[in-house]
């Protein structure tokens, strides 16, 4: 006798919310291969290839340095190049992850309408794609730090934590946006704009010390503030981030993520009809 076969029941969607993450786990091979597909196809047929991952932030940092350190003269604890670079790495990862998570379901439309798999795989697979670039950029930053004779201390051990928070934040917001984007393409149009505004609300080109202490707790509600401050601290030491603030904004992010997952699960069954 064969082992009892698996039985699939197809019924109209129930209104109850359920997460069913076990199913996503069963499709983990697909998740990995999709992530890897994006990573490996990203820079094919380009001469510089993964050099782009380094060139882009490097040129951006040089321009920032020119504008904000030579023209505007912003005071920073560390040399401006290192300061801006260390702030830019988590931000670039976050913004790229947010925009690709937002587009993930719509751009996976061809697959979505042809074959079943837990739709959650699509946003989950894109969020990790940028990590390779973070790694490459960290090497370059390491080189720059070596040039300026800057050695990271023990706080560097906390680095993965801040990258993880950046990824989870991107996922938390992206999962809402990608589900809404299926029905309202306006979302896709608005996200680049949102990212642009968001960037000015993060201490990337300026230090957090320029923000009035009175407004700083409001300012720190932005989860990326804690991430960028923490990232910089773990690489360059200097002043420690406000941990209670990070805990607070992370809790909010986590709630947004959980609600986003439930919402996504609820609407995913209509994706193929709406897309």
């Amino acid at each position: 006798m064969k082992p009892s076969p698996q039985i699939t029941i197809i019924e109209p969607p129930k209104s109850a919310f359920e997460l069913n993450l076990g199913e996503v786990w069963r499709y983990r091979d697909l998740l990995m291969l999709l992530a890897w597909r994006d990573i490996s196809a990203r820079f094919r047929q380009s001469i510089v290839g993964y050099g782009w991952a380094i060139l882009r932030p490097l040129i951006t940092v040089l321009i920032y340095t020119l504008v904000f350190s030579k023209f505007v003269r912003i005071e920073t604890e560390q040399p401006y190049v290192i300061f801006a670079f260390a702030g830019l790495i988590p931000w670039l990862y976050f913004s790229q992850a947010l925009s690709s998570v937002t587009g993930s379901v719509v751009s996976g439309g061809a697959m979505l309408t042809k074959v079943y798999f837990p739709r959650l795989v699509l946003p989950l697979a894109t969020v990790a794609v940028g990590l390779i670039e973070v790694l490459l950029q960290l090497f370059v930053l390491g080189g720059v730090m070596f040039w300026y004779d800057f050695a990271p201390g023990l706080p560097i051990l906390a680095l993965p934590l801040f990258i993880a928070i950046a990824g989870i934040t991107a996922l938390a917001f992206g999962i809402w946006l990608t589900a809404l984007n299926v029905k309202y393409r306006d979302v896709g149009m608005a996200v680049p704009f949102l990212i642009q505004i968001w960037m000015y609300l993060c201490p990337i080109i300026y230090p957090i010390s320029v923000v009035d202490p009175e407004y700083r707790s409001l300012y720190s509600l932005n989860p990326m503030v804690g991430v960028i401050e923490g990232f910089r601290w773990s690489l360059l030491s200097g002043s420690a981030p406000d941990w209670s603030m990070i805990a607070g904004s992370s809790t909010v992010t986590f709630i947004i993520l959980l609600a986003g997952l439930l919402y996504f699960r609820k609407v995913e069954q209509t994706f193929a009809d709406v897309i």
């Binding site: 699939t8 029941i9 197809i10 019924e11 309408t113 074959v115 069954q269 209509t270 193929a272």
Partner: peptide, 21 residues
Amino acid sequence: LKILSRITSPTTGRVELVGRV
């Protein structure tokens, strides 16, 4: 076919599939 492949969900009714699809 789309309902049987679980790409879209039915409005009413029920399908039972025995085994891997």
